[in-house]
Design a protein around this nucleic acid. Structure first.
Length: 564
RNA sequence: UGGGGUGUCGUCAAGCGGUAAGACACAGGUCUUUGGAACCUGGAUUCGGAGGUUCGAAUCCUCCCACCCCAGCCA
């Protein structure tokens, strides 16, 4: 076994699989599946599961199926199926011809239920939903057996057939497993296996009016597909005895091993389908692909790469501890990836006019600028330089504090890939006193940023030529919530929403090379962060950029700490 | 007061009876035409707590404590 390769992840699940391989359970096969219910969009928590299941399959030379767990027609739709397929593929995984649907197994599942009935392992219960709840007992008290528990096999079979035929109202009867109403594990107290539900299924239409429950459908779907390791999240741990019970009663020949791991939690956001639906529904965000939410669609639009997400999923590990991963790790993973591959460009988010008094009016120079100083393979482009430029407002201070070493009156700085410039005067708005224009002189000897006399400068700032720059909109995103764990108390999590999670800047100016850049392209705006051309709103006339993540900013950190 | 889980650095997480990996975060420093990147350095005398077994325990035993999940005809 090639377990010497230290780059392969190890975790308790892989340990179990190794065990199985040694003992030859499953004849050396490894088969997994990713089984989403198509009733919502995938998020980063699903990505963890996707990476785990497909990753294990690849590592052990097995296969991972993509299966829609579509046994509850209410809420499921083709739109979600399509988004799931799209997202898993985008993440970089391939299920080849193994896209399955639990709904394709409905007939087989029905026959299994009939078998259970014939074996006396299940019965048709005619208690109402409320009665079933009452009969179930509580956490500390055993339940009571249903009065319908001992119907004859013939009656059960007849009733079940008529349930399927649509002879009864929704809720009139259910199919229940006959297990143990006194079980300390509530899941085993005669769980409901089938319910009557007159709803149009997005795939089977009105063909069925009874639908199998998760516990019944899932283990059998796994078995049908000959899955060996059925990996799911911790909350299904209580269901494992039922998973095994059903397969045992039916004497199926493929009995997968269910293994549970802790679902992902991320700080400063929410990761449950329910909360995400609430945010989208209430209009707290613009939709399932809002770049502020951790859906795969949102992250894609924000500019995250599949590589970064996969790497993140590997680094967080797999265990059974309830945990909350620090958002900083996710941010680190994108930075790490984008640092490698994103071309560097110059863009000014909050422009401040800068005039170079001694630079000839009308003259334009082309500054050769590499796309990636550390990686010449990315090539270079020419950035036009002229008398009137824009610089970042925050790169100039009239009265700079001690450690601020950007532009200030009398100070000399370097314009990246341009010249050294020195501030000689400022123009202020007479009413507000705000500096609206900075005047500088440049040193013609310092072209491309070096002084022949060897003198140094404390800062290099970015800039853009006023006449040549392209106007753009830039959207700055911040954490969705003000607190690390908005679910800390189970009160209304929406009250912790960060009202400043989106800042839209409409007067940005970008270097001319960015004109007409393709949606989805990612760049580093030097000194600012990584940005991605918006997939939806960007036009060739007016580019719209989303900030993926800022650069690490030790100046910002300093100023933040001084405030404290 | 039932059952099932989990407790190792701020956050994740290795460790599987032989004397606490690694990552992120944090703190210092080197370097730098991005206050970026890269590189170096620092940090748990201690593993939820208390006992016990052992030459030796995060790892084994006992008791206790904390947190999570389960009473949908959701998954």
């Amino acid at each position: 076994m090639a377990q010497t390769n230290s780059s392969l992840p190890t975790d308790f699940i892989r340990d179990i699989i190794d065990q199985h391989l040694h003992t030859n359970r499953f004849e050396g096969r490894v088969a997994t599946r990713f089984p989403p219910e198509p009733n919502g969009y995938l998020h980063i928590g699903h990505a963890k599961s996707v990476c785990l299941n497909f990753g294990i399959a690849a590592q052990y030379d097995g296969a991972c199926n993509l299966r829609m767990d579509d046994t509850d027609p209410s809420g499921e739709s083709l739109e979600y199926v399509e988004s799931i397929i799209n997202d898993v593929r985008w993440l970089g995984f391939n299920w080849e011809d193994r896209l399955f649907y639990a709904s394709d197994y409905f007939e087989q599942l029905y026959q299994c239920a009939v078998q259970l009935l014939k074996n006396g392992n299940a019965y048709i219960c005619s208690l109402s939903a409320e009665e079933i709840r009452e009969y179930r007992g509580t956490l500390t008290e055993p339940g009571k057996e249903s009065p319908y528990r001992n119907r004859s096999i013939e009656e059960n079979l007849d009733l079940f057939e008529r349930m399927r035929a649509g002879e009864f109202e929704d809720g009139a009867h259910v199919l229940r497993a006959k297990i143990d109403m006194a079980s300390p594990n509530i899941t085993m107290r005669d769980p409901v296996l089938y319910r009557i539900k007159r709803a149009t299924h997005y795939r089977t239409g009105v063909q069925w009016c009874i639908y199998p429950m998760y516990d019944f459908a899932h283990c059998l779907s796994d078995s049908i597909e000959r899955i060996t390791h059925s990996i799911c999240t911790l909350e299904f741990e209580n269901n494992r005895p039922l998973y095994d019970w059903i397969l045992d009663q039916l004497k199926v020949n493929a009995h997968p091993q269910q293994i549970e791991f802790a679902r992902l939690n991320l700080s400063y956001t929410v990761l449950s389908k329910r909360r995400l639906i609430e945010l989208v529904g209430k209009g707290s965000v613009t939709g399932w692909d809002d770049p502020r939410i951790p859906t795969i669609a949102g992250m894609r639009r924000r500019g995250y790469t599949p590589e970064a997400i996969r790497n993140f999923c590997e680094r967080i590990g797999v265990a059974k501890n309830d945990s909350i991963i620090d958002m900083a790790l996710l941010e680190h993973c994108v930075r790490e990836d984008l640092n490698e591959r994103a071309p560097r460009v110059l863009g000014v988010l909050r422009p401040l006019r800068l005039v170079i008094d001694n630079y000839p009016e009308g003259q334009v120079e082309e500054c050769d600028s590499p796309y990636h100083p550390q990686n010449p393979e990315l090539g270079s482009r020419k950035v036009p330089f002229s008398r009137t430029l824009y610089i970042e407002q925050e790169d100039f201070m009239e009265n700079p504090p001690k450690k601020f070493f950007r532009l200030a009156p009398g100070r000399e700085v370097r314009l990246r890939y341009g010249y050294f410039i020195k501030c000689v005067s400022v123009v202020k708005n007479p009413n507000t006193g705000e500096v609206v224009e900075v005047h500088c002189t440049y040193d013609p000897e310092t072209r491309s940023g070096f002084a022949p006399d060897g003198r140094k400068v404390d800062a290099t700032i970015h800039w853009v030529s006023a006449d040549h720059s392209v106007p753009a909109e830039v959207r700055l995103y911040d954490r969705l919530f003000r607190v690390a764990n908005p679910m800390g108390e189970d009160d209304d999590f929406t009250k912790y929403l960060n009202s400043k999670s989106l800042e839209t800047l409409t007067t940005c100016r970008l270097e001319s090379s960015l004109k007409g850049t393709a949606p989805g392209s990612r760049y580093q705006f030097e000194r600012l962060g990584y940005f991605c051309v918006d997939l939806k709103d960007s036009t060739s006339q007016r580019p719209v950029f989303n900030r993926v993540v800022t650069l690490r900013d030790s100046w910002a950190k300093m100023t933040r700490q001084e405030k404290k």
